[in-house]
Design a protein around this nucleic acid. Structure first.
Lengths: 169, 169
DNA sequence: ATTATTATAGACTATATTAATCGACGATTA
DNA sequence: TAATCGTCGATTAATATAGTCTATAATAAT
């Protein structure tokens, strides 16, 4: 039970999109090359991010991706949900012949994700919600500030220059 | 990305072990029959619970499982960890050729589960920890009390009687 | 207009995981 | 001694994951 590597690829890649100038964008080829990731696979990740409205794309020569919103409005959870979908972590299968967990005399066949009745499922959802709350509070803007604080300046400017030079060719 | 159904099977099945008399136990056959679950698959679940010290087993005729600890000391998280293992939900692969997320000049190849350095991984671990905290606070004793409060008395006594009668045969 | 470059979509593949089943073995009780 | 039960390992089918490959469409530069 783990999130797919897509989540990791997405979060790491998005970092490089935060600081770029207004009218520029970065292509998948550069992003994958710089990080040593599969180009085709990373393009799938960005397809999902694009569909979720996290990034916007411009096709064609000198095309690429940029953030579709300000970094203050893109949270870790947004990225995870874009890539992993909206499924909950715990699966309430409702397959038990005898389900004693229902509440108020309703059967657990009506225990859906949008209207959970089962106590066990409710507990899991509550726990998940605590995780999501943390993740919703961590935005790309926050991440960028933390990286500025924590990383040597050279490391940050080096990566910025890498993409800047690629764009000016 | 979801927990396996084993977690659901485990939590639902453990409910019936909470209230049984001191020297009794319930067999897989009865547990699976009552809930309409696969007998062989449920036995695998209990193998894991047994290995984790959550239940204890007695083989042979009239054998079965009982809780190995008092229900106050068995949490939802204990059960999940027993069944799913100790992996974290987010996977920090350390496979990025250029990883800019490290802290204090250390490389992210040293970013392990026990000693995470990468900011993204640290954030995910923090979020997971919030979820675990909730799950560690929910014990089988708590669940049992909630079920007493929420379910009609008949439903609870019916299931208790089911296993009691099975044992007296 | 043409060409090169880029995103986008879908089909395809290999591997791993999940949810099961089956059979053999060992301990226990009647 | 026989029937019952937990334990272990091998096996299987279905699904998910992590990729690749190809075709298509849009764009910018020539």
């Amino acid at each position: 039970m783990q999130y797919s590597v897509m989540v990791e690829y997405a979060l790491h890649s998005l970092v490089y999109l935060i600081d770029i100038p207004e009218e520029e964008s970065i292509g998948i080829k550069d992003l994958s090359e710089f990080q040593g990731l599969s180009e085709t696979y990373l393009s799938k990740v960005f397809g999902k991010l694009s569909k979720a409205g996290i990034v916007s794309s411009t096709p064609g020569v000198k095309g690429g991706y940029k953030l579709a919103k300000i970094p203050e409005e893109i949270s870790f959870w947004d990225v995870i949900e874009a890539v992993e979908g909206k499924k909950t972590i715990f699966q309430c299968k409702n397959i038990l012949k005898t389900n004693l967990m229902y509440r108020d005399n309703e059967e657990c066949t009506s225990c859906t994700q949008s209207n959970p009745l089962c106590l066990i499922n409710l507990t899991m959802l509550e726990a998940e919600e605590h995780m999501r709350k943390v993740l919703r509070n961590k935005t790309l803007a926050w991440l960028n500030k933390e990286l500025d604080r924590v990383l040597p300046e050279k490391v940050r400017t080096d990566s910025q220059n890498y993409f800047k030079n690629k764009n000016s060719n």
